[in-house]
């Protein structure tokens, strides 16, 4: 069958799709977007998390045909997605930060001292992507794309989350390397930078 949907703002088309193929498979193997990961392909690990019409889903559990005519955001489009949203927020459409989260000063202790340039230097990153790098939340990185999409969506809903809020929102994303501490640090850092307009 043929499938059409929008990925990261661009219309995409895939031909000869077998009806049993998942959205994840079509993204990875037919559209050249392997950023969404295939750690379990059974909806348990969250490494394949994408936004489907704004809702975070395990793309391994979505049949490709179900995405027909819909909008998908993957980790490859996260920076642009976040940038567009921030520009929308400049009009005052987004919620203001208040209350229970972490202040930027508190969050700065999770910011690594280094200021290294990277391969891909000059690449514009979403705040959550930059925070994952700065806080040391990336080791093998296989869980990272799914966590970034999930964490970004949580910060969109809840710009100033408590630790318990972060844990609840990310409980569908397994990480085997970090013990989650630096992922917590990264999300707190991103929230604090976002709320204080850094």
């Amino acid at each position: 069958m043929r499938v059409n949907f929008t990925v990261n703002g661009r219309p995409q088309e895939a031909d000869d799709v077998w009806e049993g193929e998942s959205l994840l498979y079509v993204l990875r193997e037919r559209m050249g977007l392997p950023g969404s990961k295939n750690a379990c392909e059974q909806g348990e690990c969250g490494s394949c998390t994408v936004r489907l019409d704004g809702v975070p889903v395990c793309s391994c559990l979505v049949a490709a045909g179900q995405a027909q005519g819909r909008e998908v955001v993957t980790v490859e489009g996260l920076a642009e997605f976040a940038k567009d949203r921030a520009e929308g927020c400049a009009t005052g459409a987004c919620g203001s930060a208040a209350g229970k989260g972490t202040t930027l000063d508190q969050a700065k202790r999770w910011q690594a001292g280094g200021t290294d340039s990277q391969t891909g230097e000059g690449t514009e990153l979403a705040p959550i992507q930059q925070a994952f790098i700065d806080a040391g939340a990336v080791q093998c990185g296989f869980c990272t794309p799914g966590l970034l999409v999930a964490a970004d969506e949580m910060l969109e809903r809840n710009p100033n989350p408590s630790d318990a809020d972060i844990r609840e929102a990310l409980s569908g994303n397994l990480c085997r390397c970090t013990g989650y501490e630096k992922i917590m640090d990264a999300v707190r850092l991103a929230a604090a930078r976002q709320s204080e307009g850094v």
Binding site: P34, G35, L125
Partner: peptide, 22 residues
């Protein structure tokens, strides 16, 4: 505490894992 040289690639989805080979 320098940062990972592969960090940007890993957060943008561009870092190619063995299952991404094509």
């Amino acid at each position: 505490s320098t940062l990972r040289p592969d960090g940007t690639l890993k957060v943008t989805g561009e870092f190619a894992y063995s299952s991404d080979m094509w």
